[in-house]
Design a protein around this nucleic acid. Structure first.
Length: 577
RNA sequence: UGGCGCGUGGCUCAACGGUAGAGCACCUGACUCUGGAUCAGGGGGUUCCAGGUUCGAAUCCUGGCGCGCCAGCCA
């Protein structure tokens, strides 16, 4: 898969933002403060966290926030972070997702060492603990149907009603539970429920379901089981088994914490973990819900989970976003309990900051307009030494061919330029970056009257881009030698959704899909070195933006995805009119 | 309507009883062989509201208001 060496920098690197910085005033979120306090008070010696994805979809930028939080805390406080698959619902989970999750967390730059776990590793133990509860009168097998259970749960304001089976003898529940495991009953026939309080104002405590019958084969345990623990019965106990000290999850689990604590308290666990909740990430102009992302894929609004428009980790990677930029973004936005929506611009800022520092500069023309240099000898070719990255002298230089026929960007020429347009126009001189000054003498039109080519003259004294007399053109254009150009397909991307908060008006979010989220350009002309750029490598096309080589590239026809444009103040001026 | 949680510039977060700050965004200027980058400066806040405690409240208390989550055998 695409990868960039810079992304392999371990997240614990103290030079990175987000890592503890000796000397600087400590700025930490409320969770890090809790961890620090627990360590200071001796409640915790080695903090242990975990990232617990359910393999029912691909990871997205919201998960990246959680991954950075959990692995970040472990690294900063000398603890460890486990990768644990929360695989308790075989009807939704697939091996493909497991593999993708492993790859994505690694790509983000994190390492769980030996600590790869699955809730399914604990099925036998969880089963034994279920029996433990039954024996103590703390759980019972309920014969009610799903509908009956719903009807007797009560409402937000009314208490529920106890099941007729709630007080059946433990021995009977034990027998039934064993027969549930043995496969004697169909899906939905019976469940195991905790016996807590049907009148609790917290609905999660109204005799929550602990086990349900699901005749489905599991990606890891196959057909060994036909009963599966619910999230509530698996999560806290898995944390206990693994010695997790700080079980960090999102706000919607806050209401589950009393149940989490109840289970851990009533089970003979050797370690008591604690749950803390933070606000999940929301981003403008996209959607971060596995359900909706799955729909985008299934309904074909995008080409797959890794479509460059998707906010998935794999989509961002294919889009050319470096892992480091994603980590920096996570550090920048912080962690709190306030529901929030972050402007995508903030993510883009973090990504541009990394790319500006690391992306090699190249020339690429997206919408080519032919320029013929009339005073340049036919057939003559010169080689220009061009700097690879002005931000990084160590990146060196490369050779780029220059000749009589060139391609420039069509939008870099205007026959009747408005006042603040600095680029090429009839009679005007501009600089071709790292090459020569040229002056436009003549506009050649085709039969339809459209501009077909520009006839220009160059100044031989300006080789390399400087004039001996010190004159300075108001603008510098990128260019590609027509004789050496590599034709390419370039895919331009924009926000997947037009509105900042898709579906906010109450309408279906899909109504807000941006029809222009992808624009495919087939006639782009790139400098020759771009033919060898590896898939996954992000470069900067000077003056245009960052572009990454896509795996769809074919021999002789590279495909590049636009990661992001450069900051463009001219566009801003134009937009203002 | 019950429970839990949350309200600080446009956005995200700090300030932990002692003059409300930062990053992003926005605007100006400088510089520049990317209209990029960089640098310098600027505008913008009755800290949801109302009472109270205190010499002093974004912070503590009370009461409102607003928003989010919860009635899956999803996680």
């Amino acid at each position: 898969m695409p990868d960039q060496p810079a992304d392999r920098r371990p997240p614990t690197d103290p030079a990175r933002p987000g890592a503890p910085d000796a000397g600087a005033p400590e700025r930490r979120d409320f969770i890090r403060e809790i961890v620090a306090a627990d360590i200071a008070a001796g409640r915790v010696a080695v903090p242990v966290t975990r990232f617990p994805p359910e393999p029912n979809g691909y990871l997205h930028i919201g998960h990246a926030k959680s991954i950075c939080l959990n692995f970040g805390i472990a690294a900063e406080f000398g603890g460890r972070c486990h990768l644990r698959f929360d695989d308790t619902n075989p009807v939704k989970e697939e091996q493909e997702y497991i593999d993708a999750i492993v790859e994505d967390v690694r790509w983000l730059g994190f390492d769980w060492g030996e600590h790869l776990y699955h809730a399914s590793d604990y099925f036998e133990q969880l089963y034994a603990w279920a029996i433990h509860l039954i024996e103590r009168g703390l759980a019972y097998v309920d014969d009610q149907s799903p509908d009956e259970i719903r009807e007797t749960r009560g409402t937000l304001t009314e208490p529920g009603r106890e099941s007729a089976w709630r007080n059946r003898p433990a021995a009977e529940s034990l027998d039934l539970f064993a027969r549930m495991r043995a496969g004697e009953f169909p899906n939905g026939a019976r469940v195991l429920r905790a016996k807590i309080d049907m009148a609790s104002p917290n609905l999660n405590l109204r005799d929550p379901v602990l086990y349900r019958i699901v005749h489905a084969s599991h990606p890891r345990t196959g057909d060994a089981w036909c009963i599966y623990p619910t999230y509530d019965f698996a999560h806290g106990q898995s944390d206990a088994i693994e010695g997790v000290t700080h079980s960090i999850c999102t706000l919607e689990f806050e209401n589950h914490r009393p149940l989490y604590d109840w289970l851990v308290e009533h089970l003979p666990v050797s370690h008591v973990p604690h749950q803390y909740e933070f606000a999940r990430l929301n981003l403008t102009h996209t959607v971060l819900s596995k359900r909706v992302l799955l729909r985008l894929v299934r309904e074909g609004h995008v080409r797959g989970w890794d479509d460059p428009r998707m906010p998935t980790i794999s989509g961002l990677r294919r889009r050319g976003f470096p892992a480091e930029g994603i980590r920096d973004f996570a550090a920048m936005i912080g962690v709190a309990k306030t529901d929030s929506v972050i402007e995508v611009g903030q993510l883009e800022f973090a990504v541009r900051a990394v790319l500006n520092r690391t992306a090699p500069r190249r020339f690429g023309v997206l919408d080519p307009l032919k320029v013929v240099i009339t005073n340049w000898p036919e057939g003559r070719v010169e080689t220009m030494e061009v700097v690879n990255n002005p931000e990084d002298p160590a990146a060196g230089t490369r050779s780029v061919a220059f000749g009589r026929d060139l391609w420039i960007e069509r939008e870099d020429f205007m026959e009747a330029p408005p006042p603040k347009f600095f680029r090429l126009a009839p009679g005007r001189e501009v600089r071709l970056r790292n090459a020569y000054f040229i002056t436009c003498d003549e506009v050649v039109r085709d039969a339809t009257g459209a501009i077909a080519e520009l006839r220009c003259t160059y100044d031989p004294a300006t080789r390399g881009g400087d004039a001996p007399d010190g004159r300075r053109p108001k603008s510098t254009l990128h260019w590609v030698s027509a004789a050496h150009a590599v034709p390419a397909e370039v895919r331009l991307y924009d926000h997947l959704f037009s509105s900042p908060i898709p579906g906010a008006t109450g309408a279906d979010a899909f109504e807000d899909l941006n029809p222009a989220s992808e624009t495919i350009i087939r006639g782009a002309m790139l400098e020759a070195t771009l033919a060898e750029t590896p898939v996954g490598q992000t470069v900067q096309f000077e003056r245009l933006g960052y572009f990454v080589r896509d795996p769809d590239s074919r021999p002789g026809m590279p495909v590049f995805n636009r990661t992001l444009t450069l900051r463009d103040t001219w566009a801003k001026v134009q937009a203002r009119g």
